[in-house]
Each structure stands twice: as structure tokens, then as C-alpha cells.
Design a protein around this nucleic acid. Structure first.
Lengths: 245, 245
DNA sequence: TTTAATAAGTGTACTATCAACACTATCAAA
DNA sequence: TTTGATAGTGTTGATAGTACACTTATTAAA
């Protein structure tokens, strides 16, 4: 084994999940390079990533990436894994990498993976005119670099978190109905729940606050709207931890 | 904000937790530098870390670090977080860092944090004669660099995992008693459990296999020994996931 | 060989949560 | 006013959680 230590380039890659009440999407960047004669030289899709600047923390870099692409701040964001196989960007991808970067392919690229959760409707994709678009998770068959792997691991981490902690509402507008919340869980965890049992469970979660407000303009009985209260959540969480989980 | 991108040095830092039936310990490295005249120039404790070599994956580097320090392979290991504040190793620690390293302090040091779980008795600390020793977690008040922060985050991640997944036995010898297992949970989660209820719960976990073997040489009724079966665990886990968690 | 010390091992009654299941209410649009 | 669509609601049986005290098997000391 070689004991040589590589130079390393750090990038923060964000898997931005967006829910549109029907399916789970990921924000992808369309990298298309046009030749001088107008033909497409090369095209692929990648996750959204960037470098960490000199005076930034990792989280600041991730926040900046989210802001650049969506125009949004204070989005739910979680660091889930770091990727750094020595040859992860080489082999088949070398040429693509060099097309878009001037870096030395001998260096190792280390990606710190984050996932973000938001409601697609919050985002105006025309923001800054980037080649960015939503793509349903289950239609993504290929991504540039090793971003397919990063997406898979993000999905695992996100599902795991969704099962154990109340983050489902992060994929919905601030005010949401219980049916919408149930759909978040059903679609992401690929299952179905009994409506009455789901509501009984929600009723026990004191941090989901029922509002005196209903849906408007729907062609059926309008549903009551709910909000998440972080304050109540932190309080009950502490109580639980005091008596131990 | 500066858009300058730093050079980055990647290190893999391992928080090696060891349980000795009574308390949770961490493997720390004693860094003591002696002056020419025999006086101690400087001393502190740090976590165990190292660089990633050219042809290694992150996990291989972590495995190598564990092996170098303990002589053990196939230890439970989990990547939990990556640390990279721009000034994390500077300020007060600059001198210490330079004493032990020839690197440029302007570069950013990125640490990929792992935690490992094992029974202290498995380790022969004389291995390779390193300045390495066990230290009880709750006696660690200070560590070099920002390793105290890394330790805190490792503890949070480890406790969280311990609550949600069966990893407690990783801190015990291959064959263990239920009282030993109960103690793992009680000490790490800082609580107590009722013995009968704990055993009822364990009885439901089919992957904890009772053996036809008992403790020997103890001055009380000898306890039955148990083993973890990964095979049974993977099977029941799949069944659970099929019907959804 | 008896006794003391120590931890192992075991059951029950009550409460809370889980899981399965079907009908009525309210709104917009036709 | 009828139709279509989704909201909203209770009960029962099974499973898991919680609180609680005594007997048993072994070694060491008397």
C-alpha cells in the first residue's frame, strides 16, 4: 500500500428534496456543453454542489448553495455522510470532470453530503437563471460523477430520520392538512397507513398544532390546517429524554 | 465574504469507545514532548486520527487506524460527522499543532469523524508500544485540537444509534450475560431499567440467542450467556421493513 | 459443613399503544 | 339538486409497557 497523501479538494454536495404533494423530487443541475458548431458536446445531470470558501464553515457553505439555487434561507439541512473514494471521480467520468473543471484529476475530491427538505412550491426556479430543475426521485436513473451513490445514501439517511424524528412537515408549506402529512410518509416510505390510526397518532404529538383555519377553494369538504411548533417539540423532547427513551 | 478556496488536509479521526462492564471509556493518545534538558515541553491528550493514503477509501483509513491502535480488525465502525470550521485548529492550538506537524497552518484541516465500539478487554494496549490509553468518558475534561467537540458529537450520535438499533452487544465480549447488556444501556444512557421488563424485551428480540452455557467462577448464581446473531437480525429487519416501520 | 454474600432468574395486574375496520359530513361544480 | 371528492370520526381485540418482590445457585468465609 502507498503511504502517499493526496491533495484534497472539498466540495459540499446538497441533495435538495422537494415534495409537491404527489411525489418526492430532487433538484438537479443540467450540465450541457455546446460545441462551437452548435451541436451538443456533452450533457448530464448532477446534484448541486460547490466549494467551501476560505472563511466559511461547512454549514455556511451548504446554506449558500441552497440559497444560490432556490433563493431560500433557513431550510431544513442535515449533514449525512462524506464521500472520498480515491478514484471516485475518475475512470469513466474523467473527461466530464475536466470539461467543467480545471483541476488536477490526480487530486482526491472529497464531498461532504447534505440533504435538504422543502416544499417544491416554495422555490422559484427562474431564480438566477440556473440550469436547475426538479426531477422525481424514482425517475433518476443516472447522475454525473458518483452523485447517484450520494443520492441513494441521502435517501437512506432521510428515510431513517423521517421514521425517528418529526421532520415530515419540512416537506410541506407552513400550514398543511393531515392528509398531506400522511402522504409525505406514505410516498417517501412507500407504504400506506390507515387514516384513523394515523390521525390518532398525530393527536398524541402535541407539537402538531391544529389551527382555526381551513383549506379554501377545494371541491370537497375543506380540511383543517395544522402547524408544527418547534417550541412545543423541544419541550416535550426534553421531558421524554429526562425520563429516558 | 472571501471566495478564496483553501487547500484542505483530510484526516480521519476515530472515537474508539471501550466498555469494561462498569463504565464507558475512550481511547486517547498521550502527546508529550520532552525538551532537550528532559523537562516536559508540552503535553495533551487527543483522539486517534490519521490521514487517508493515496489508494485508500475513507473506511479503509478508519480500519487501519483502529488496527494500528488496538491490533483488532472487523470492529464496529460508523462515520458520524465531518468537521471543517475554517479556524478550528488555530487560535489557541496553533503552537501545539505545529509542534507535531509540519503543515501550513493556513490550510484547512477537515476531520471525518468515526466512532468505534468494542470491549476494552479485547485490546492489548502494549500493542506497538503507542502512547495510548483508556480514559473514562466522564473524566475527559479537555482534549487537544477540537477533539472535545468531536467526542461530544460522537457521544450524541452513538447514544442515538444505541436507542434505535441493536448495537449494545458490540461493547461486550462475544458471549455476554443479560445483566451485562442491561448495564451497557444503563450506563451509556444514564438511567436504570427494571430487570424483569428488560428481559421481557430482550426475549422478543429473536437475534439475541441464549446459549447452553453459563458464567464460571462467579461467587453467585452463574448467569446464562447470550450471543448476537447477525443472520437472524438481518432477516427480522427485512420482515419489519417489508411491513414498514 | 454451615452460613453469609451476591447476583440470577421469574409472574402478574394494570395501562397504553397498535391494528383492523365503514360510515357520515361538507364543499364545488355540473 | 345532484354528483364527485375528500374530511372526519369510534370500537374492539391484541400487543407492548410499567410497576413491583421473592426464590435459587454459586463461592467464600466462618
Amino acid at each position: 500500500m502507498s503511504n502517499k497523501i493526496l491533495n484534497n479538494y472539498i466540495s459540499v454536495d446538497c441533495v435538495i428534496f422537494g415534495f409537491d404533494f404527489e411525489k418526492l423530487n430532487v433538484l438537479v443541475v443540467d450540465r450541457t456543453l455546446i460545441k462551437d458548431n452548435g451541436e451538443i458536446d456533452f450533457t448530464d445531470l448532477t446534484l448541486t454542489g460547490n466549494h467551501i470558501y476560505e472563511d466559511e464553515t461547512i454549514v455556511e457553505a451548504a446554506d449558500r448553495i441552497i440559497y444560490d439555487l432556490t433563493g431560500l434561507r433557513n431550510i431544513y439541512l442535515e449533514q449525512f455522510k462524506t464521500f472520498a473514494a480515491p478514484d471516485r471521480l475518475k475512470k469513466e467520468n474523467d473527461r466530464k470532470w475536466l470539461l467543467f473543471n480545471d483541476r488536477n484529476p490526480d487530486n482526491r475530491i472529497v464531498s461532504i453530503g447534505f440533504f435538504a427538505l422543502l416544499a417544491t412550491q416554495k422555490v422559484t426556479l427562474e431564480w438566477k437563471g440556473r440550469n436547475v430543475r426538479w426531477m422525481p426521485v424514482d425517475e433518476i436513473t443516472e447522475l454525473g460523477f458518483d452523485h447517484k451513490l450520494i443520492l441513494s445514501e441521502a435517501l437512506i439517511a432521510m428515510r431513517n430520520k423521517l421514521i425517528h424524528e418529526p421532520i415530515g412537515f419540512e416537506l410541506l408549506p407552513e400550514k398543511f392538512t393531515l392528509t398531506q402529512l400522511q402522504k409525505v410518509y406514505e410516498i417517501i416510505l412507500d407504504t400506506t397507513f390507515d387514516k384513523r390510526n394515523f390521525r390518532k397518532k398525530v393527536a398524541r404529538m402535541k407539537y402538531l398544532i391544529p389551527l382555526d383555519e381551513k383549506q379554501k377553494g377545494v371541491a370537497h369538504k375543506p380540511a383543517r390546517l395544522y402547524m408544527f411548533s418547534r417550541e412545543v417539540y423541544e419541550k416535550t423532547r426534553k421531558e421524554i429524554l429526562n425520563f429516558l427513551v
